[in-house]
Amino acid sequence: MTLEVLYFVWLRERVGTGRETVETGAATVADLVAELRARGEGHAAAFADTRAVRVALDQELAGFDAPLEGVREVAFFPPMTGG
């Protein structure tokens, strides 16, 4: 499947881009993260500690165990600091 993967804040800074198209067979978010880590040093640094990373699937918050079937957009970002 083809996914649009978005990175925000320091994940974007470490990966070096805010968006990339990824061709993957990953079943879950955790599987996708394992694949992304292998893309290079920047990706590995972004996902060094996933306790500090939140994920949204098609703009809804989700867990790392969430399935990717039917998903088009995956976003990774740190805990939010609005308000």
């Binding site: 925000f8 976003a75 970002f77 939010m80 600091t81 609005g82 308000g83």
Partner: peptide, 12 residues
């Protein structure tokens, strides 16, 4: 206010 702080995707 509580939800905007922690559940709306903003980063400062």
């Amino acid at each position: 206010m509580d939800y905007l702080k922690s559940r709306a995707p903003f980063w400062k």
